[in-house]
């Protein structure tokens, strides 16, 4: 495709003194207040600040702690009452030999959330610093984080389905534990952290020859 200006030059909208719409990409003069193409209000400062990212990330980490301390699932049968946490649930599955499902639960509820905290924190810290990873790799990391974060919700949905299904009076009942609430909040907050991260900041700091 045709590049802006000469073929050997790439320029960002900000460097050209222009304003780009974040929703549809249409480029406007600096004075524009609303996007001509999609109608979005254009902010005069074209980069979203990192404060929002840090705030959502911190909130996500804080509510992730009770999500792991309190029970996710409460099972009552004729013989016993059993409460299991997120990790406990995965370990129970291991004991019953369901390795595949235990792995899914472990990946969705522990690995992805913790990995996301680290990745978002790293991306936010790496802005304006010479990092180990190139802009391309950091951008790839950002895309992975954005794509994968939602999948953490699996365990909450499992709890919802089991609680609806296993209501057999005194024989067996399954009820949700309070951890389901804080876990959902943690997923939502980290999704908001990822969404408020402006990927253009990665490229602004990129000093590699284009």
């Amino acid at each position: 495709m045709e590049m802006a200006g000469k073929n050997d030059e790439l320029i960002t909208a900000r460097a050209a003194g222009l304003l780009a719409c974040t929703r549809c990409g249409r480029v406007h003069r600096r004075e524009a207040t609303a996007c001509q193409r999609c109608g979005t209000t254009l902010a005069p400062e074209s980069r979203r600040p990192l404060q929002a990212v840090w705030a959502w990330l911190l909130a996500g980490i804080i509510v992730y702690i009770p999500a792991n301390i309190y029970p996710m699932l409460r099972t009552s049968t004729l013989l016993e009452n059993h409460e299991s946490t997120i990790v406990g649930g995965a370990i129970d599955l291991l004991h019953y030999g369901n390795y595949g499902v235990a792995a899914i639960v472990f990946i969705a509820s522990i690995l992805i959330p913790v990995g996301k905290f680290i990745a978002i924190g790293y991306l936010a810290l790496s802005i304006g610093r010479a990092g180990i990873l190139s802009a391309h790799s950091r951008h790839r990391l950002y895309e992975v984080v954005e794509f994968i974060g939602r999948w953490s919700m699996i365990d909450v949905f499992v709890v919802a389905i089991l609680s609806a299904l296993v209501q057999l009076g005194t024989v067996a009942t399954i009820n949700p534990g309070v951890a389901a609430v804080s876990f959902t909040l943690s997923v939502a907050f980290t999704m908001l952290a990822a969404q408020s991260f402006d990927p253009r900041l990665i490229w602004d700091a990129d000093k590699e020859p284009l």
Partner: peptide, 30 residues
């Protein structure tokens, strides 16, 4: 990279779009 030209000199009246992830300006592709 030359940045001292105004956007009008560089791109004239052509509609431009910027990449949503890196902000690089492109002339609207057909």
């Amino acid at each position: 990279m030359k940045t001292n030209m105004t956007w009008q000199e560089r791109f004239g009246d052509r509609a431009l779009i910027a990449c949503p992830t890196c902000d690089t300006v492109h002339v609207e592709p057909d």
